[in-house]
Structure formats: C-alpha cells, structure tokens
Design a protein around this nucleic acid. Structure first.
Lengths: 143, 143
DNA sequence: TTAATAAAAGATAATTAAGTCTTAAATAAA
DNA sequence: TTTATTTAAGACTTAATTATCTTTTATTAA
C-alpha cells in the first residue's frame, strides 16, 4: 500500500502532532526512537517533508522539527502525496499506461469504489484526529 | 497496491481465461504480447502460478499454459495471495509489527473498513467476471 | 529416432528502494 | 567567539524487485 518511507513519514508526523502544547518541536533522535525507525533514513524523510512545507526545522541546540501549521488542517492525503505521489489514488491497479473510463482495465470499476473509499478517508482524516488517539492511549506508534 | 509481478499475473490469468472454448491453452509469447509484459519475467511468474496450482503447463509443440479449474471459481484474492502474499490484507498500514484490535496503530480503524472493502471485492470477483468484460470489448488488457 | 518446439530451472544483470556515513551549515549558550 | 548541538546535503552501500540470459527437460511430429 504505502512505501516504508511513507509509513515512517506518517508515523513521524503523528508523533510530532501528538506532542504537548508548548513543546511541539522534536529532535530527530526522539522521533526515530518514538516511532522505532532507522535514524538516518528518517532524517532523509523529514528533510523531504520540510521541503514540502509539512514540517519546519530549526538547527542547533533545542532545534528539531515542528508541524507547519495546524494539525487539524493537515490530512493524511497530503503526507502520502508528498512521499509516494498520487500513484496509489490515480494509477491503474493492473498497471495499464492509459486506463480510464473510456479505456478501462478489467478491474477498473471494481477498484474505482475502493479507491474512492480510500481517497475519502485520506482526504478527511487529519493529523489531529489520529494524534488525539495516541494521546488518549487508544492507539500506538510502535510495536 | 500490487507488485508488478502481481499485476502481470492478474493480467495473464485474465487473458488466458478470456480465450475461446476449445483453445484455452496459450504460449508464453502470446501471453506476454497480449498483456504487454516482458517475456522472460512473465515466464517466471507463470512458473510460480503453476507451482501454486492456478495454472497447468505443457511443454513442447502446442504446449503452453491453461487455467487450472473453472475461471468462475478462481478469485482475484487467490492470485494476489499467490504472488504478493497476504500482506496487503493483513499487514499494518503503518508498518507496526504487532498491530491488532488490542494494540492498534493510529489509523487501524480508518483502514479496517477499506481493507474489508478491498478483501470483499477480491474474494468475490472471479476470473470469469473480469475475463467476460474483455471478451465483450468493455475492458482492455493493455495500454 | 531425430529435429523442432516450448516450458523449467538456475545464474546473472539492471533498476529501484531502503538505509548509512561523512562533511557542511546553522544556531544557541557559555 | 568558541564549542556543542542539531539539521542539511550529498555520496555511498545494501537489499529487494524487476528483468534477462543460458542451459536443461519434456513433448510432439516428421
């Protein structure tokens, strides 16, 4: 479904969004530990999220990464789009170059509903929605 | 969503299932041409489908591959399972090792519905369902 | 029984994704 | 202003997937 990079990105964003008010900047080490991801690879992914204006970063002591904007206005779809692109939501399930309503692959309509279901969920689930679940102990970021 | 190998497998199975009664065995070259896939790689995938009893094969002149059993009783889920395993339907969307109802990841319930939707479709869509669409010109196997 | 055909099997190569390492640049505090 | 801290950037390595090539085995038909 998602690449590993994308999974780490979502986990990292949820972790940062779940930090208590007043301390909403986290360092690479904290993030990688919290989400159980390889540190150097996570750094690359965070850099990429910074370039896409989903995170901002500060170098030096007490530096780190913070969410750009309001977590209640950032949706999972944006994170997936940033790392994996739109292939999951727009590419043909069977890999046809030109799959469309006019020239559909054999499973086009079967997948259309699922894709819309998935897109709907990703476009309406905000970072704060899922971060809240972590804060209330309903869900977990590792193991 | 699916690996390339899995996409080729599904396309190949649909192509074979769409052959006219009486000539339901196809050679590697025909298959690869019909679904626009790399021949040698396709051979590997077909071999794997033969091992999993989804296809049977005959060597020598007029040999080739034929569907094992009735295409109306073979479901997309079996093909996906054979090539990609059950990770798409059972693995955690965020990559957690132990994600479950008791220890859910932050998006567990959001994805549960989508996964069930996808599983339902794959488990109920048979090869003959989709092959018929190709035969009636409603859908296409390449480009 | 020989030649042609076609899949099986295994080795190899190319490409992409995942992950690491080193050096540079920025920032804060002493 | 120096040192420690922390991210940025780019080169590099490893692993997995995708793809090809060569040899072997099975089958058919002449």
């Amino acid at each position: 479904m998602f690449s590993k990079a994308c999974k780490y990105a979502i986990n990292a964003m949820i972790y940062i969004a779940s930090l208590p008010k007043g301390n909403q900047r986290a360092g690479l080490k904290d993030i990688a530990t919290a989400i159980n991801s390889p540190e150097a690879f996570t750094a690359k992914i965070l850099q990429s999220l910074v370039k896409d204006d989903l995170l901002n970063s500060v170098k030096g002591p007490h530096g780190g990464f913070a969410i750009c904007g309001n977590p209640s206005e950032i949706y999972l779809a944006q994170l997936v789009e940033s790392i994996d692109g739109n292939i999951l939501l727009t590419g043909c399930a069977l890999g046809l170059k030109k799959c469309s309503e006019d020239h559909p692959c054999p499973v086009h309509y079967k997948f259309k509903a699922i894709r819309e279901h998935l897109a709907g969920m990703l476009l309406t689930t905000s970072l704060s929605d899922v971060a809240d679940r972590v804060n209330t102990g309903i869900s977990f970021l590792k193991h």
